[in-house]
């Protein structure tokens, strides 16, 4: 946890621009799974007119439409706070449009490359087809998360550079490029998965918590595990 506070600080970046696909769910589940283990949390909403605080533990970026995505990237680059937070070793969990803009470059609606925030070594562009539907992927075994499920809805294709590692191997769906899904580099993690991803994959939520606070006790089963199993069965 951050040195300035005994609370786990969850910073939700630009809910006014990047919160189109139930992204609030990721915030709510992180808070719930932390507090159930006795870890107090603080949720900070950062609007696009605010500056991004540097002392957060977990930064969340959600999905958004093309124009809000470009606005969000421009504002994050001008602000500089997220980049400084990542340099301090903060955890960043970013989804879809948010995933693309934390990379080196991403494509606008004409696939012209635009600069990203540059905190993870990925480059995104536009594919020929839109990837829409249930997606299933096996997470890098070293992360101890297992199989994840979500709903993807994007036209992006993402190439993973040498500094970053693919988050998972796709079993069903498109993800980055038909073979892998998402990426991580240190504690900066991105994915195309909606659903939202953390409610549908409690183990992925727990990975982010472990990164911040170390080992955490297991929780009794919740509807999250039931949903996880149900969606896997429905998709495969």
């Amino acid at each position: 946890m951050s040195d300035t506070s005994s609370r786990l600080r969850i910073v939700w970046i630009y809910p006014d621009l990047l919160s189109t696909y139930g992204d609030q769910g990721n915030v709510l589940i992180l808070r719930r799974r932390a507090e159930q283990r006795g870890i107090p949390t603080e949720i900070v909403h950062v609007h696009s007119s605010d500056s991004v605080p540097v002392e957060g533990d977990i930064y969340l970026l959600g999905g958004g439409e093309d124009r809000p995505q470009i606005l969000a990237a421009e504002r994050l680059i001008a602000d500089g706070g997220l980049k400084r937070a990542a340099a301090r070793g903060a955890c960043v969990f970013s989804v879809c449009a948010g995933y693309q803009i934390i990379g080196e470059t991403y494509g606008d609606d004409d696939d012209k490359p635009l600069p990203g925030v540059g905190i993870i070594d990925i480059r995104s562009g536009r594919g020929a087809t839109r990837a829409v539907g249930e997606i299933v992927a096996d997470v890098d075994p070293s992360l101890g998360v297992g199989r994840i499920t979500g709903f993807e809805n994007h036209q992006g294709r993402t190439a993973i550079g040498a500094q970053a590692t693919p988050l998972s191997t796709t079993v069903k769906g498109i993800g980055n490029d038909d073979h892998t899904e998402g990426a991580y580099q240190g504690q900066v993690l991105g994915t195309y998965l909606h659903g939202p991803a953390l409610p549908r994959n409690p183990a992925l939520a727990d990975l982010l918590l472990r990164w911040r606070v170390g080992e955490i006790p297991p929780l009794p089963p919740s509807w999250g595990e039931t949903l996880h199993e149900e969606r896997l069965a429905a998709a495969l």
Partner: peptide, 9 residues
């Protein structure tokens, strides 16, 4: 719509 993410909004 096949995506239920909106329930979280």
């Amino acid at each position: 719509g096949k995506d239920t993410s909106w329930l979280w909004d």
